[in-house]
Design a protein around this nucleic acid. Structure first.
Lengths: 151, 151
DNA sequence: ACAGCTTACTTGAACTCTCAAGTATCTGGA
DNA sequence: TCCAGATACTTGAGAGTTCAAGTAAGCTGT
């Protein structure tokens, strides 16, 4: 039988602070993007990754990995983005299972329109609150949280 | 005209690390709870807060504030929890607009059953990865992110 | 060459969340 | 008193996410 190692008070506080802070920041940015640009943050992330890719295109599976999404989620998301004309799908000739997601000019324009407001929001709810020392440490800590190889 | 203060490379890294780390941790725990206990993390949080409240009951609006949720979201959530018999609603006699959410014995039992596995998961994806120094700093930083009064 | 596994992606249904609108109740001032 | 506005909560519709299952195409070993 395994005895649960419950969280002590300090751990409780630490955990709830992390959870609440990250929720708060994410919700705030999601709301800002939805309100000002009519897209959730997940869609914004897709557009960003595509815009940074060579020829503004990526395989669906690569794109999913880049934006930290399941294939299913991405597939639905790209379907919506396609409806808006912001992304286009292209079947790969070499391997017909693969499809490429391609950022259209309209998609790039939508991203360009959304970006300034979003960056400003990120500054307000994140960077402007932290000094360089804190920022550096937070980055390190987050890197640690990410490093452990998923099971 | 306002000139956008774009993020420099360090800022990009910091921001993406924070976003990715917090998403990863949250998704992991959400998945764990859903898989092992059939509830999303948001519902678990509701049960926890109720279990800690005097008489295991809270007004809907207080509960919403405690779990960082909109009233609408909480109302839907409590409706689902009520269907499962984990929470019960009681109209307040003094102010009939108010309703109390009350944790039932079944709800408490469900929480008790879910907690050990969840705590273990939190250890694995959070505490076990950080040393005490990092934990302390992270808590401070998250407190800063939370402190700014929402507009 | 071809049966069976793997890979890449899609689909559908169930569920949660959001936003806006709706209901009921209370409160403060004319 | 009474009504206009505030408060507490609910409801419904639309959208995104998840999970499991489904399709299609490539690979592998015999």
């Amino acid at each position: 039988m395994i005895v649960t190692r419950w969280l002590d008070d300090d751990e409780q506080r630490a955990w709830r602070a992390f959870l609440t802070a990250s929720q708060l920041v994410q919700e705030e940015l999601d709301r800002q993007l939805q309100r000002d640009s009519g897209m959730p943050h997940a869609y914004y992330a897709v557009l960003v990754k595509l815009s940074e890719a060579p020829d503004r295109m990526l395989r669906m599976s690569e794109l999913a990995a880049e934006v930290n999404s399941s294939q299913s989620r991405l597939s639905h998301a790209v379907a919506r983005l396609e409806e808006r004309g912001w992304v286009r799908r292209e079947r790969c000739a070499a391997d017909k299972r693969v499809s490429w997601a391609v950022l259209t000019d309209e998609g790039f324009a939508a991203l360009a329109a959304a970006a300034p407001g979003h960056v400003e929001a990120v500054r307000q709810s994140f960077f402007d609150l932290l000094d360089p020392e804190q920022l550096h440490r937070l980055t390190e800590i987050c890197a640690v949280l990410l490093k452990r190889t998923a099971p």
